[in-house]
């Protein structure tokens, strides 16, 4: 028998520090598989964020730098401008990318930085213990929206993929989900497309990945996947918002 599924080379052996059932691990594996498939592991520099995935530099078997909170797209810009032939990606959560780092992500996309952004949207702050994120759904209860998110004072959840796809130099923008095998297969395809865009030097690419945070949602991992399907996907529709063909 032949091994048809195993640990990609672009992941180290270090066990993930994420809570049971957290989708970060799936997202890590998909990115790593794509790097393996393009055979670019040894020519890749990753930028990890502040948040639960702050330790991603231990998990990805590629050169990594840990940026300040929200600044990963700026740090990645610095790297890519020096090494235009390296593969550069950022891995960011919703607090990082859609709150504190909104300026950096918008302008990296607007300049068309030839980097790939992996954006984990789980509608909550994980590492700090479950506070409201810019992507927290209306009515969703968190530590800092204890009576539910009220759009009158807290605004509506930000749709980053849609927002960024209004920018002319954003070459590939998509939203995927990791709640079931069929969606995971689609997510992988999308991540592969995003890195292909970078390899082809077509400009900025971002995949927004709807993910669960069972611990801070207060749900079991299986319930969390269901909650994502029933609550997040209707508000954050899946699909491609921008493709290189539209840019050209």
């Amino acid at each position: 028998m032949k091994k048809v599924f195993g640990r990609p080379e672009s992941l180290t052996e270090v066990p993930f520090t994420y809570c049971p059932g957290c989708h970060h691990g799936i997202a890590h594996r998909l990115v790593a598989e794509v790097l393996d498939e393009f055979k670019v592991r040894e020519n890749t520099i990753g930028v990890c964020p502040v948040g639960c995935s702050v330790f991603a530099y231990l998990f990805f078997n590629v050169d990594m730098i840990c940026a300040a909170h929200g600044r990963a797209p700026a740090t990645a810009t610095g790297i890519k401008r020096v090494k235009p032939d390296s593969i550069v990606f950022t891995y960011q959560g919703d607090g990082d990318l859609a709150s504190i780092g909104t300026a950096e992500i918008v302008h990296a996309a607007n300049r068309g930085e030839n980097i790939t952004v992996i954006f984990i949207n789980n509608a909550i702050y994980g590492m700090t213990g479950g506070q409201m994120a810019p992507t927290t759904l209306v009515g969703q209860v968190t530590q800092t929206s204890p009576y539910g998110r009220d759009p009158k004072t807290m605004g509506y959840p930000i749709k980053m993929a849609e927002m960024l796809s209004t920018l002319k130099r954003a070459a590939y923008i998509s939203r995927v989900a990791l709640n079931k095998p069929a969606n995971i297969i689609k997510a992988k395809k999308s991540i592969k497309k995003a890195f292909q865009v970078q390899l082809d030097k077509k400009g900025f690419s971002m995949v927004e990945i709807l993910s669960t945070c069972p611990t801070n949602w207060g749900l079991s991992p299986i319930e969390a996947s269901k909650w994502l399907e029933e609550n997040m996907i209707p508000y954050f529709p899946l699909g491609e918002f921008r493709t290189p063909e539209e840019v050209a």
Partner: peptide, 12 residues
């Protein structure tokens, strides 16, 4: 803020 973080990336 972005500028110094670009410096961080490039310097690395």
């Amino acid at each position: 803020i972005a500028a110094i973080n670009m410096v961080y990336g490039a310097a690395s």
